[in-house]
Design a protein around this nucleic acid. Structure first.
Length: 276
DNA sequence: CATGATCCCTGACTGC
DNA sequence: TGCAGTCAGGGATCAT
């Protein structure tokens, strides 16, 4: 799944091609995503100017003045910008190319999403009040997300720290991969009860989360196999992980065997030598 | 309210 | 080679 770094990278990749451009047309090939794509988008959007491209959690927000187009990539979604100066333009849509946003300059923003867990939604009004966004916790890379905050928010919680990190009311954008990686770097076992972790360990955890996410963004977003960079080039090489997807293999620091368990129907990976 | 389970979906992979 | 079965995963939503 595109995690926060991929979404951030995608947003940065598409923004220069979209910002200030007028929408000319909308093509919906398959509206059946996580929620139906609003049928009236082809009527509503043409003529509107995309003013800014923003990211909140894993949502990409295209501010069109009269409303905001909300895009989510689910776990297999990708966006590409097709440019008229490229060879073979206009490129005929592939399987799973569900949605096109066509701009006045002929460029096309194309959503590809095999598993269709993604979303394309339209919101009029204060975007912060949208049901999907209004209950979200802080962005992990802002100063609002710090050890004091995590410590305070987790007092009385009985849930495991791994699941707490993936709870979007606590903090957004930390998916399974980075929750596992950050806990490893912080030396915290994913099963530890969040409410029992002290401020010192949270300092280390917050540092690990920010470090891991920044590194991935710098690398252009670590990727699942079907992530495609917004300029159309194939995705980056899979990032080297400390624990994620490495069950049965040796820990890179202590050579213990990496263990895999299920927490809340999700796989967790950890080293019992390095994480307590 | 906090927590855990279920569901949406298709492609990659495994075993026969 | 092909087929059936399993797994993966974001996150809303339902059940406890």
């Amino acid at each position: 799944m595109p995690e926060l770094p991929e979404v951030e990278t995608t947003g940065r990749g598409i923004a220069p091609h979209l910002t200030g451009q007028v929408i000319a047309n909308v093509i919906i090939r398959n509206s059946k995503l996580r929620w139906p794509i609003p049928e009236n988008l082809p009527v509503l959007l043409p003529g509107l100017t995309i003013q800014t491209v923003m990211r909140r959690a894993k949502y990409l927000l295209l501010d069109c003045g009269k409303g905001v187009l909300i895009l989510h990539l689910g776990m297999s979604g990708s966006l590409r910008v097709l440019l008229p100066e490229l060879m073979q333009f206009p490129e005929s849509p592939r399987k799973h190319d569900h949605f096109d946003l066509i701009l006045n300059n002929q460029a096309v923003l194309r959503l590809h999403d095999p598993r269709r867990f993604g979303a394309v939604l339209w919101h009029v009004g204060n975007i912060a009040q949208h049901p999907l966004l209004m209950n979200l916790g802080p962005e992990p890379l802002t100063a609002d997300f710090n050890a004091q905050y995590l410590f305070r928010e987790t007092r009385g919680l009985r849930a495991c720290i791994k699941q707490t990190l993936m709870n979007s009311r606590v903090v957004v954008g930390i998916g399974n991969i980075y929750a596992n990686e950050a806990l490893y770097l912080a030396g915290i076992n994913p099963k530890v009860i969040a409410g029992r972790i002290g401020i010192g360990r949270y300092e280390k955890l917050v540092q690990a989360i920010k470090h891991t996410l920044r590194l991935a963004i710098e690398a252009g977003g670590s990727s699942l196999r079907d992530f495609v960079h917004s300029d159309g080039t194939r995705g980056y090489f899979q990032q080297q992980y400390w624990v994620y997807g490495r069950s049965g293999k040796g820990c890179k620091q202590c050579s213990n065997v990496i263990k895999q368990i299920k927490q809340g129907q999700r796989s967790s990976f950890y080293c019992s030598g390095c994480q307590h």
